[in-house]
Simulated scan of single mutants.
Amino acid sequence: MGASGADRRVLVVGGGAAGNAVAILLRRAGVPVDLVEAGADGNASAGSGITLQGNALRVLRELGVWEQVRASGFGFGSVGITAPDGTVLHVQDDLRTGGDDLPATLGMRRPRLQQILLAAVRASGATVRLGTTAKVLGQDADGVSVRLSDGSEHRYDLVIAADGLGSATRAAVGIADKPEPTGMAIWRVEAPRPAGVTRTDLAYGGPAHIAGYCPTGEDTLYAYVVEAHRDRTAIPPASYAREMRRLTTHYGGFWPGITAHITDPAKVNYTWFDRLLVEGSWHRGRVVLVGDAAHCCPPTLAQGAALSLEDAWVLAQLLTASGTWDDALFQAYYARRIARVRPVVEASVLIGRWQLDGVRDADVPGLMARTMTMLRELP
C-alpha cells in the first residue's frame, strides 16, 4: 500500500474509550476515519463513574482533551484503607503511573468522559454514525467489505474492532475467545459527594468483599460494593437500590450519607466481573481488536480504561509510522500490548480470587505496587 494516510480508509466499530481515541489519533495523521457506535446517544448516558489512573491521563493528554478532563473530574493522590465502621487504618500514596506532572488518579463521571471524547472525534473530522452497527462481509489482502445497519455497503483498508467485551466483530472474524466470569460482581451508583471525601477509600470485610467510593467532581462521587456474583435473573432491576442499600447500611464513616441517596433503582448498576485475554494475535487479516474486545479484567487495579486507551495510542503510532499495513505490523502491536496487558489481567483476577477464597496472608499491596510500577513506563 502507498505511504499516504489519505489513501487509506479506516472503520472504527465502537465509540468507547479505545474507539474514540484511535479515531482521534488517526485523523490527526490525516487518515479518513468512519466511526460507528450502536448507542444512539454515543454512550453519553452510560455508567456512573470511572477511576482513571495516571497512565490513562497520559493518553488523554495526548488526545488533546486533558484540560477538559481535569476541569470535569477530581484528581487525588492517595487511597485510604478503612475498617467497615469507617475507621481509617492506612493511607497509601498512589504511584503516578502517568508521570509526575499528572495526578496519580482522577475520578470523573463516565458519561462526561464519553461526551468529551465524542466531541473530540467529531472535531477531528471523522464521520460519526450513532445508532449504527457494522457487519464484516469478507476481506482480502487489500481490505475489508462491510455492511452497516443502515443497509449501505463500504470498503475499508482496515477495520478496528472497538466494540467491547461482547464484540460481535471479534466473533465474526473467527476469534473464538469469550469473556469468562471471575465469580465476583459489583454494585455501582452515583451520589452527592460529602465534603470530606477527597480520595478513594476502600473497606475490606463486612457483608461485601469491598466497599469503596471515588470522588468524581466538585459535588459528585460514585460508590460501589463488590460481592460474590449472584444469579442475575433472580435480581429484578426494580430491586437494585434496595439490594445495594442492604449491603451499604453495614458500613460507617461517610457511608450513611451515601446510602441515604441510594433510592432510585434505575441509577444503580449491577455487573459481573469478567476476564478476557485474547492470545496469539489480536487481528485476523485487516480486522484488529482494541480495548475490551481484546482484553478485560476486574477493576481491582482500575486499569480497564487505561489499558484500552493505551491500545489505541500504540496501534495509531504503528499505523501512522508505517507505509505497509500487514500481518507483521499487527503482530508487533500484539507483542507490545500483550507483555503489558497480561500482567495486569492476571494480577486483577488474582486479587479477586484471594478475596473470594479468604486468603488472609495475600500480599495485595506488593502485587499492586509491582504491577503499577511497570505501568509507569511508556506503553
Rank of each mutant, 00 (worst) to 15 (best):
M1S: 14
A3I: 12
V12F: 04
G14M: 04
G16F: 08
A23V: 03
I24W: 03
A29H: 11
G30V: 08
V31G: 01
V31F: 08
V31D: 00
V31E: 01
V33A: 02
D34E: 12
G39Q: 11
G39K: 13
A40I: 08
S48K: 10
G49T: 13
I50E: 07
L52C: 13
L57A: 04
L57W: 03
L57N: 00
R58T: 01
V59A: 07
R61M: 04
E62T: 15
E67P: 00
E67S: 13
E67D: 15
Q68Y: 01
V69T: 11
G73Q: 10
V79T: 14
G80E: 13
T82E: 15
T82R: 12
P84V: 11
D85G: 10
L89V: 14
L89M: 14
H90N: 13
D94V: 10
D94F: 09
G98R: 11
P103K: 05
R110A: 11
L113N: 07
L113M: 13
I116D: 02
L118W: 02
A119P: 02
A120N: 00
A120V: 01
V121G: 02
A123G: 09
T127N: 03
T127Q: 12
V128L: 08
T133F: 09
A134P: 00
K135D: 08
G138M: 02
D140Q: 02
D140G: 05
D142E: 14
L148E: 03
G151Q: 05
L158R: 04
L158H: 05
L158T: 08
L158C: 07
A161Q: 03
A162F: 01
G164H: 08
L165A: 11
S167D: 11
A172P: 00
I175E: 01
P179V: 09
P179A: 09
T182N: 08
G183L: 07
R188A: 10
A191V: 15
G196T: 13
P207L: 07
A208M: 08
H209L: 15
G212T: 13
G212H: 07
G217W: 06
D219M: 01
T220A: 12
L221H: 12
Y222A: 06
A223R: 07
V226W: 03
E227N: 10
A234P: 02
S239N: 11
Y240T: 01
M244I: 05
R246P: 01
L247A: 11
H250K: 14
H250Q: 14
G252Y: 10
P256Q: 09
P256V: 09
G257H: 13
G257I: 08
I258M: 15
A260F: 10
N269M: 15
Y270C: 05
T271Q: 14
W272G: 06
D274R: 03
R275G: 04
V288D: 00
G291M: 04
G291R: 06
A294I: 01
A294Y: 01
L301Q: 14
A302V: 11
S308H: 09
A312K: 05
A312M: 08
L318Q: 06
L319S: 04
T324V: 07
W325Q: 03
D326R: 06
D327I: 02
L329C: 03
F330E: 00
A332W: 00
Y333T: 03
R337P: 01
A347W: 05
S348R: 11
Q355S: 15
Q355K: 14
V359N: 03
A362G: 06
D363N: 14
P365S: 09
M368P: 00
T373Q: 14
R376Q: 10
P379Y: 13
P379Q: 13
